[in-house]
Write a protein that binds this DNA or RNA. Structure first.
Length: 357
DNA sequence: AATCCGGGGGC
DNA sequence: GCCCCAGGATT
C-alpha cells in the first residue's frame, strides 16, 4: 500500500527541497530559540489546535513564570490554570502539570528521550511525542498533525477521509518512510511550516511551493479538492441564566466547576440551566442547589459562546443575597471582592460577564 | 470509531 | 454562518 503510494516519488529530492526551503523561510518563533526539550514540550502542547499567533504571548509568559520543569512542578494547579486562562482546552494545562511533576519525580527533571517513556506521559500522544523527539532530540519520528495530512494528501493525492482515525495512521506510515534521517527536525517542522504558509487549506500558493514538482495534486490541478474531510456534526445549544450575586458589601459569589469535564476546575458565576429549571423557579433552585437565598434583580445583558461541540446562550442577571438569612458556605463556593476576582481562572464567557459588575 | 474538550480568526 | 487550527483522553 505504502510502496504503491511512493512509487515514482523521489524521497531524497523531496527531503532536500523541503528542508532547504524551511531553512531559508522559517519564521522566527520564540520556541525556536533553543532546543530545550521542556520548552519544545510546552510549545507543542500550546500549539495543539491553536494558532501560532495566539500561542506566542502565552508561551512567553508561561516560560518566564515556569522556566524549568522544577518550577512548574512546584506550582499549584490553580496558578497553572490562571496562566493558561483564555487559551482553551484546559485539560492540556492540567495534563502538562501532571506530566511535568512525573518527570521531576521519576526522571530527575530530564524529559525522556525515548518513545516508550515519553509516550506514557499525560497529554503526550503520537503527534506530540514525534514533535518532541524530532525537534528536541533529532530523532526521525513522524509528527503528523493537520498540516502534515493536508500536505501529503496533496503531494501523494491521497483521498482518504482525514477526519477518520485510521487515516492518520496511514500518514504516519508515509512520513515514517519519507522522513529525513539527517535532519528530522527541519523535515517535520518544514512540513508544518509549509502547511501553515503555503499549502494552506484554501487557495494554496502552489506557484511558490518548494515541492510542487513532487506534488500529484498540483500536477492534476486537484489541490483545492484535497484533503477530503467529512463534516463535524452541529453543536448543541444550551440556555443558561448566569447570576452576578452580590452581598451588602458588594462581594461576588463565584463557584468552582467540577474537577472533570468541560472547563474543569475553573471558576464561574453560578449558572442555571434555565430550560430545565424554569424561570419562575430560579430563586428556589439557587437556594436548593447552592444554599444561597437570593433575590433576582435586573437583566444586564446576554451572550453567546461557541465551543467545539456546544453553544452556550446566556442571559445575565444581577441578584442580591437576601439580608438576614444565612449564607451556607459550600466548598465549591466563594464570596470574593471585585478586585480578588483576578486571582481565579475564569473561562472567557465569564470574563466577559465581569463588565456588568 | 465516535465523542468530548476552547477559543480565535478568516472569509 | 462555516471552516480551520503544530491533538489527546475517554468511551
Amino acid at each position: 500500500m505504502i510502496d504503491k503510494l511512493l512509487q515514482d516519488f523521489d524521497i531524497s529530492r523531496f527531503q532536500h527541497d523541503l528542508i532547504q526551503w524551511y531553512q531559508e523561510n522559517k519564521r522566527d518563533l520564540p520556541w525556536r530559540k533553543s532546543q530545550d526539550p521542556y520548552k519544545v514540550w510546552i510549545s507543542e502542547i500550546m500549539l495543539q489546535q491553536t494558532k501560532v499567533d495566539t500561542v506566542i504571548p502565552y508561551f512567553y509568559h508561561f516560560t518566564e513564570k515556569y522556566p524549568t520543569p522544577q518550577k512548574l512542578a512546584q506550582a499549584e494547579e490553580q496558578e497553572v490554570l490562571k496562566a493558561w486562562e483564555g487559551l482553551g482546552y484546559y485539560s492540556r494545562a492540567r495534563n502538562l502539570h501532571t506530566a511535568v511533576k512525573e518527570v521531576v519525580a521519576k526522571y530527575d527533571g530530564q524529559v525522556p528521550s525515548d518513545e516508550k517513556h515519553l509516550g506514557k506521559l499525560k497529554g503526550i500522544g503520537p503527534y506530540t511525542k514525534g514533535a518532541i523527539l524530532s525537534i528536541a532530540f533529532d530523532q526521525p519520528v513522524p509528527a503528523v498533525d493537520g498540516n502534515v495530512m493536508r500536505v501529503f494528501s496533496r503531494v501523494l493525492h491521497i483521498e482518504e477521509d482525514i477526519a477518520q482515525a485510521k487515516t492518520k495512521k496511514l500518514f504516519e506510515k508515509v512520513v515514517g518512510e519519507v522522513i529525513s534521517k539527517e535532519d528530522p527536525s527541519s523535515f517535520n517542522q518544514g512540513l508544518m511550516e509549509l502547511g501553515a504558509l503555503v499549502c494552506t487549506p484554501k487557495k494554496p500558493q502552489c506557484s511558490l511551493c518548494p515541492v510542487n514538482e513532487h506534488c500529484q495534486a498540483f500536477a492534476l490541478g486537484a489541490e483545492e479538492k484535497l484533503p477530503i474531510k467529512s463534516k463535524a456534526k452541529k453543536q448543541k445549544r444550551v440556555s443558561y441564566v448566569a447570576l452576578l450575586i452580590q452581598d451588602e458589601q458588594g462581594r461576588i459569589v463565584i463557584e468552582k466547576r467540577a474537577d472533570n469535564g468541560l472547563l474543569a476546575n475553573l471558576w464561574q458565576f453560578p449558572m442555571v440551566p434555565i430550560k430545565e429549571v424554569g424561570f419562575t423557579h430560579l430563586e428556589s433552585y439557587v437556594y436548593r442547589e447552592h444554599g444561597i437565598p437570593i433575590q433576582l434583580q435586573q437583566k444586564q445583558g446576554n451572550l453567546r459562546h461557541v465551543f467545539s461541540h456546544l453553544i452556550w446562550e446566556i442571559d445575565i442577571y444581577q441578584a442580591s443575597i437576601i439580608s438576614g438569612e444565612k449564607f451556607q458556605k459550600n466548598k465549591q463556593l466563594k464570596l470574593v471582592s471585585k478586585q480578588d476576582l483576578e486571582q481565579y481562572p475564569f473561562p472567557v464567557p465569564h470574563q466577559k460577564m465581569m463588565k456588568y459588575i
